[in-house]
Design a protein around this nucleic acid. Structure first.
Lengths: 314, 314
DNA sequence: CGCGGCCGATATCTCCTGGATATCGGCTCG
DNA sequence: CGAGCCGATATCCAGGAGATATCGGCCGCG
């Protein structure tokens, strides 16, 4: 049995007339009679009573037609659903991001995305750069936003573009000696007890910070004698700084989360943190991802050029 | 698009392999590739990613396959539903019957029918012979059970068989002169105030009763000087008799509904009422009706022969 | 009561297309 | 780097869907 049989049976039921049904179907009457006869033979049941006053469905016909209508509705829904999914109007986008992306980048991009693609299910999860990279490679995420971008095994399967930059600031409690100054130097940070992102979760930031603090010192000299406390997120860094644990270090957007009892000091001279990087699987042809990238292209200067360069030979 | 495309796409999704999917479908691999390619062309969307590690559905493919599964399920349900309807396992049977059928015939036949065909929706309505005949002809009923069977316009479109016989009994209140006797004669009934079924609703019974009472009297003599009260159902007849309105007349099965404060008298010599008759439209080929007739055939002696005679030249 | 017309079924032919066979091209893996 | 697997492509064939012509039955009309 083919869906053609369903369409033909429904046409006959609708017109109560083989000739007119055939015309509506764009075929001649004999083949329609044949197809209905073949269908009835296959079902082992007569579907229509051919009377002098018209063609009417039997009880079996009624039962069959009801199902046939639903089957054809599912088929046309299959077509339109596939089209919408292919155009990226429906589907799912799972996004893993570092907390600081939530302070500036994501509100803008996600707002636009949700307006453009209201039927796409968004999965949002804040996580470290290491975890989002691993989840992206494992296929558990579609987009990862982290600092410094993915490195290590599997990174060659990903495409990464810079979507934001921040410079370093220091956060101290009111009682801290730095509290009076609006600026601190890198030199001053050496020897302080520092509150920073976990080294194994944010490898790029950790490596960069080590390089920054070791700069110009002897390799043998223990540069950070003050020790280090690792904190996962902005609010923890600020909280620890406020109660005098040490000097919090992080991107300038930490200011957004600052509280009255801490002071945020610029670091002088100004130094840039590893960039905010958005990654996705280079093999991922998802139209939803493409739509998200389009929006990122519009909203983040420079992203268009980076994507063109990296995706050029597609 | 034909349902073949859905089957093929599902096979590919299931096996993640064109060759094995084709083997499972009983066709060669090239036509399968072609059909999938044609489907993708028609949809304007790629449904499968052909990678080195296997064939996997795209987002559009997932959406399509989900609908395709439902569409095919509806199609096979259409086949089985049509079959069950054709075999009379599902469907509807609307039955109109005179009250006295409920006292003996229907409990037996309906019990068996409900056991045999639990999924058939039964519509039961008690009504007069005139109304059930009209409803049957109007297509509002599938079976009518009345007394004396249909007559008048349209009766030639119906098939009727006798399914029960009853003899006449008289019902009187305790204070009635007949209360002492266990038998009354037809002669004694003449001149009594009679409680009988409505003449226009039960034409066969009324005509038969008139003939019975007029038997042997002069045409000019007013035979029933006692007058008549018409009552629709057994309980009303008995109720009216009990409070002395007159002598209730009805089939012997009235005894089933009798109360302590009335007496049911045999009429002597015993006379038969018009038969209990079951009718259906001779054009009706409903398998549910056929199943009901089969049960009637088993349970009512003589019905098989009557049906064979009347339906023989089908 | 017969005849004309409508409608679905049947007969026959044609041609499209779904399927088979053979082969190619690309990728993976030993 | 070559063997082998797998999907795509090329080519051919045949079954069957559909077109045309015609039949047969039923209804309605004169």
């Amino acid at each position: 049995m083919e869906s053609r049989h369903l369409r033909y049976a429904l046409a006959v039921a609708e017109h109560q007339h083989f000739g007119r049904a055939a015309a509506a179907l764009g075929i001649a009457q004999p083949p329609l009679s044949q197809q209905i006869a073949a269908l009835e033979r296959e079902l082992g049941a007569r579907l229509f009573d051919r009377t002098a006053r018209g063609v009417f469905p039997t009880a079996a016909g009624e039962a069959f037609l009801a199902r046939a209508r639903r089957a054809l509705a599912e088929m046309s829904a299959a077509v339109s659903d596939a089209g919408r999914a292919a155009r990226g109007e429906t589907g799912r986008l799972r996004l893993g991001f570092i907390g600081s992306a939530l302070l500036e980048l994501l509100p803008s991009v996600l707002g636009q995305f949700i307006r453009d693609r209201p039927e796409v299910r968004l999965g949002l999860a804040e996580m470290s750069t290491r975890r989002s990279t691993a989840a992206l490679l494992a296929g558990e995420l579609d987009i990862a936003i982290g600092r410094g971008g993915p490195r290590g095994a599997g990174a060659e399967d990903l495409v990464s573009v810079t979507v934001g930059r921040d410079h370093l600031v220091a956060v101290v409690g009111a009682a801290h000696p730095f509290a009076g100054q609006s600026k601190v130097s890198v030199e001053q940070l050496r020897g302080q007890h520092l509150i920073v992102a976990p080294a194994d979760e944010e490898p790029a930031v950790a490596a960069w910070l080590t390089a920054l603090l070791d700069e110009g010192t002897e390799a043998s000299t223990p540069a950070r004698s003050g020790g280090v406390t690792e904190a996962w997120d902005a609010h923890t860094i600020i909280g620890l700084a406020s109660c005098g644990v040490g000097v919090g270090l992080g991107p300038a957007c930490l200011r957004v989360a600052a509280r009255p009892d801490v002071q945020v000091c610029e670091v002088s001279p100004r130094v840039e943190l590893p960039e905010l990087v958005m990654s996705f699987r280079s093999q991922d042809r998802s139209p939803v991802l493409a739509a998200f990238l389009d929006i990122t292209r519009e909203r983040c200067p420079g992203v268009a050029e980076q994507l063109e360069r990296r995706l050029g030979p597609r």
